[in-house]
């Protein structure tokens, strides 16, 4: 009976058609714009083919943005996984069922916040004179000023800490749930062999969870691409270009500074190609 139904066609085709149109039109159009020389201020345009791309590779600010993006990706992904595994294991070890539920609820809160809200919350907290997060430093040093967001060496880490605050805590909940799904026997066996607590996790439970943890890291890598809101609110890419990621630079080229839409689009196209290729390859490996 199931086989003869037209349901798959009527349910799938409209949705997939709409998704295809909604995603392919902007994607293809982004490539078209990247091959022209459109600017927001002037209505006319002509085809310049690949000269936008050629210019990009000579643009030192673009190369800087690539480097900042790579740094951002590595810092946030690694720190998120470390925090998540650390706190997940801690909850698994020392918290009873009720306490676990309580912590889980607390740890989900930051990730639900709009990125803009999270960015504001921490921008206030990091304020050198009146911030709550810099207060301990002022207290200990007797009023010295520490301004993490306006120092080139710390700004990226300060913004990244907000990202980890949101995702690391959330992933800790997932790590805990994953640990809870494991069968108890291997853990018992390791305990009988006098393995220490950390050894049990390092050599038994975490290796058993390798596949879901890698998937989790994959998700974080995708979500880390969306750094724009945090950086836009907290530093605007500054100080200088210390936190200027690719999407921030594309935005400021296209909208704030010069309105060079085509140039910005060329950047976006390069980002798109790089991410689609990287993540498709990673996904195939994760699935395999």
């Amino acid at each position: 009976m199931r086989r003869r139904s037209f349901l798959p066609v009527t349910f799938l085709v409209p949705t997939l058609a709409i998704l295809l149109v909604l995603s392919m039109v902007p994607t293809l159009y982004a490539i078209v714009i990247a091959l022209q020389n459109r600017e927001l201020s002037t209505p006319g345009y002509s085809w310049v083919w690949f000269s936008n791309f050629a210019d990009l590779f000579l643009d030192r600010r673009f190369l800087n943005a690539v480097w900042v993006s790579v740094k951002w990706e590595i810092v946030t992904v690694v720190a998120t996984m470390v925090v998540a595994i650390g706190l997940g294991v801690l909850m698994f070890e020392v918290a009873g069922p009720r306490l676990r539920n309580f912590y889980c609820l607390l740890f989900i809160i930051p990730v639900l916040l709009p990125r803009v809200s999270a960015a504001f919350v921490w921008k206030f907290a990091y304020h050198p004179l009146y911030g709550i997060a810099t207060y301990p430093y002022r207290l200990v040093t007797g009023g010295l000023i520490f301004d993490p967001l306006s120092k080139a060496s710390t700004a990226l880490f300060a913004v990244a800490s907000v990202d980890v605050w949101q995702w690391g805590l959330f992933f800790a909940v997932i790590v805990l749930k994953l640990l809870e799904t494991l069968p108890p026997q291997p853990i018992e066996a390791a305990r009988l062999d006098h393995a220490r607590r950390w050894q049990i996790h390092a050599y038994v439970t975490l290796p058993m969870l390798k596949a879901p943890l890698i998937s989790l890291m994959f998700v974080k890598m995708i979500e880390s691409l969306r750094s724009f809101d945090l950086i836009y609110v907290m530093t605007r890419g500054g100080p200088g270009v210390a936190t200027e990621t690719l999407d921030m630079y594309a935005f400021s080229q296209g909208f704030i500074e010069s309105g060079k839409v085509s140039y910005a689009s060329a950047m976006a196209v390069l980002m798109m190609i790089a991410t689609v290729i990287t993540f498709t390859m990673l996904w195939k490996r994760v699935q395999a």
């Binding site: 998704l19 995603s23 039109v25 902007p26 994607t27 159009y29 982004a30 078209v32 714009i33 459109r38 995708i222 691409l225 969306r226 724009f228 690719l246 999407d247 594309a250 935005f251 296209g254 839409v261 910005a264 689009s265 950047m267 976006a268 196209v269 980002m271 798109m272 991410t275 689609v276 993540f279 498709t280």
Partner: peptide, 17 residues
Amino acid sequence: SLRFLPPVAVAIPLMVI
């Protein structure tokens, strides 16, 4: 894979469209 698309890459052409 729709989630891989950088938001800027979608937003710029859509703005023009």
